[in-house]
Design a protein around this nucleic acid. Structure first.
Lengths: 158, 158
DNA sequence: CGTTTATTGTTATTGACTATAACCATTATT
DNA sequence: AATAATGGTTATAGTCAATAACAATAAACG
């Protein structure tokens, strides 16, 4: 009754044809993302981080002094949805908020030492999760893949 | 105040560093997907289809006789969430549901002629949207990209 | 100047989508 | 025959993104 080839962790299940859908880049992107997303979520949860929290923490770490509106634009999310995330990161002592002297509407964001350590550790965990899910890629393959995805984003290197 | 290079449809905005986050495959997949998803949504909406409805329609078209549980597994979604989608596709006369004689719990799904035409047209629209967003790729490049994404999914060709 | 317009961070709310649990009918297992 | 498992269904809860409105502040402009 089952398909001939079914292993315990079978991901494919019964063979289903997807000639049209499967040749769409958007569909393939989503499917690939669906493979890594739960794993990233899982490893980040060990540090009580959500994917979006980690993204914020990481961008702030690499852009000290960035303000919320810029961060929101960088992550393509709404300013309003950032607030609770920033609040929590600050409450946990992972980031700092300091008023910009020249513009009192804005808060300059920065990561604390703890925040930086957590970011680095979480990033390492995600990389290892990606290796586990996608299979280890050497640096060249990884760079090629990233470049291809950047090209899709319209951020071509050349 | 603004960065030196800002065009009307500027996607990058002020240059924000993302050395760590940006080198994660998962993040790059998500970003690439975020570029095409709204456009796919938009072109499908012209035919009163959602992305998930189109996906169902397309899988059914390529797998006549498939039942809901199989379809749910193929699209990695919950059976329960499929019901309303299938209902609507049937109400619109795009698919048919016929009881399986040998197992009266199951409904064999199939697409009507109208459904098939709609599927083909919608697929073509999405392809054109992908070309517009990602830049036209020749068949070789497209195949290479699809193969790379399939490899990430653990569905390597070789 | 002074008035108007725009921006930033914020709150509250809404809608869309996903996951979960429970249920009945039917089939498989034993 | 009794029990367990499966398919479709319904209802519900939780998660997340999008929107609108607002006060404080700054920018634009007469």
């Amino acid at each position: 009754m089952a398909q001939p080839d079914e292993s315990p962790d079978d991901r494919t299940g019964p063979i289903v044809e997807d000639l049209v859908l499967g040749s769409l880049i958007g569909y393939r992107l989503k499917r690939a993302y669906m493979r890594i997303q739960p794993e990233a979520q899982r490893v980040l949860a060990e540090d009580d981080l959500r994917v979006v929290s980690f993204s914020c923490l990481s961008i702030i770490a690499d852009n000290p002094g960035i303000v919320q509106a810029e961060l929101a634009q960088a992550l393509q999310m709404e300013r309003s949805n950032l607030v609770v995330i920033i609040d929590e990161l600050e409450d946990r002592g992972l980031i700092t908020r300091t008023k910009v002297p020249t513009d009192r509407r804005r808060y300059a964001l920065g990561v604390t030492l703890r925040g930086h350590h957590l970011r680095d550790r979480a990033a390492q965990n995600i990389r290892e999760a990606e290796d586990a899910v996608f299979g280890r890629l050497d640096e060249d393959d990884r760079a090629t893949l990233i470049a291809a995805l950047l090209r899709l984003e319209g951020r071509a290197t050349a």
